[in-house]
Design a binder for these strands. Structure first.
Lengths: 212, 212
DNA sequence: GGACAAATGGACTTTACATGTCTAGCTGTC
DNA sequence: GACAGCTAGACATGTAAAGTCCATTTGTCC
């Protein structure tokens, strides 16, 4: 048997290599997510996570210095992955509205929906803001920039008319995000987009679509 | 506002009365069940249960002396309620087979299915045997008696023929229960009866149905 | 075979938190 | 005002999780 747990089938594992280390980290984070979702941060123990990952508690500490570190790494990865998908969505086909809608749906699906079903959702979000506020806020900032840019380009092409509502792209992007987060706060977070979200998108569309 | 949390709407609560005390107990057990199902016995704290019941931790200790007491009370109530339903099922319409099938389905639905979905099912059953073995075994005994009686009566009426398999009602009842518990052990516990259970019931029916 | 890396089980200290108890105080009823 | 029910909060105590460390095992490579 190989000494490395994370061989890809058929290929020997060159340990001491970065790929394996990274795979191990990913594997652990994959295992940790459902544990955190199920129990929340506090009730989830390092033993739980180690068991879920199929490794020993000692090994867990070889990859992460602390439970908080592990959580931060998980949060960071989720934000990184989701933002990559969001960028793809924004570069896709369709109108600005379609692409923004897709982008936001992706964002929700990646960063909110996975926890929304959990009774520990509140605690998890609180812990996330306590341990990974920088990542979270930076990501939100970046999403804002991406939306602004999309709106700006659409305005430049005449696809939308921001003059009608006297708004800068950045302001409008801010409104969109705020509305989405508000809607998610009130209603539960379904996967994808809810009715309220779609209604808001129709409002937006109606407001900035150029006449004629 | 009334000083009693558990008024039934429209009727003043006469505290110091047994009804209210019992209602409170029931209310707490109702609240405690999902907490135990969600977290298992160990991870579920008295604070969790108090919060779920909408009362203070101190009040919880006015109703129950300990977490173990509370669990025992919950287990006892579940067994009591379920056995009452089982008796109804056994007195119902249809053949012995139908009634036994219904009885067992009721038993499973009341005492196994609620926990079967939980990842903590194993721990909960272990804790139950540690804290409420008497209740559990007594209930199982009682179920055995009820099934035996049903089989006995059916045999007396000529509805079934136990001579064909050379079995006493009690032995057959024991086999049925053992088979059910084995099936539930192997397969997951769905609500109601699974395919395996139904197959077993067909076997039983075929084996003891009198010829002609 | 020996050197080496990775992972493990287990022992250990420290720290956090849950249990169970108690008291003083609040709220609404009679 | 007396009383009952509930509460918040403090408390001592015990359990267990966090984090650290090391001896040992397992498998790889030379």
């Amino acid at each position: 048997m190989s000494s490395c747990l994370f061989d890809t089938v058929g290929s020997k594992c060159q340990c001491v290599c970065m790929i394996s280390t990274e795979q191990k980290t990913m594997h652990i984070l994959d295992a940790a997510l459902p544990v955190f979702v199920r129990f929340g941060f506090r009730k989830a123990t390092m033993a739980d996570i180690a068991r879920a990952a199929g490794i020993s508690r000692a090994s867990l500490y070889l990859s992460f210095n602390s439970k908080e570190d592990l959580f931060r790494a998980g949060s960071a990865r989720a934000h990184r992955q989701t933002m990559a998908e969001v960028e793809v969505a924004l570069k896709g086909q369709g109108s600005v509205f379609d692409r923004i809608e897709a982008a936001i749906a992706t964002f929700q699906r990646g960063l909110i929906a996975p926890f929304g079903g959990s009774a520990e959702a509140r605690e998890l979000f609180e812990v996330n803001m306590a341990l990974a506020a920088d990542i979270t806020l930076e990501t939100r900032e970046r999403l804002l920039d991406l939306l602004s840019l999309a709106l700006h380009e659409a305005a430049a092409k005449g696809e939308i008319d921001l003059g009608a509502v006297e708004a800068q792209p950045a302001s409008l992007a801010g409104i969109i995000l705020a509305a989405m987060s508000g809607i998610k706060e009130m209603r539960g977070a379904e996967p994808g987009l809810g009715d309220d979200t779609r209604l808001f998108m129709r409002l937006l569309r109606a407001a900035v679509t150029p006449p004629g």
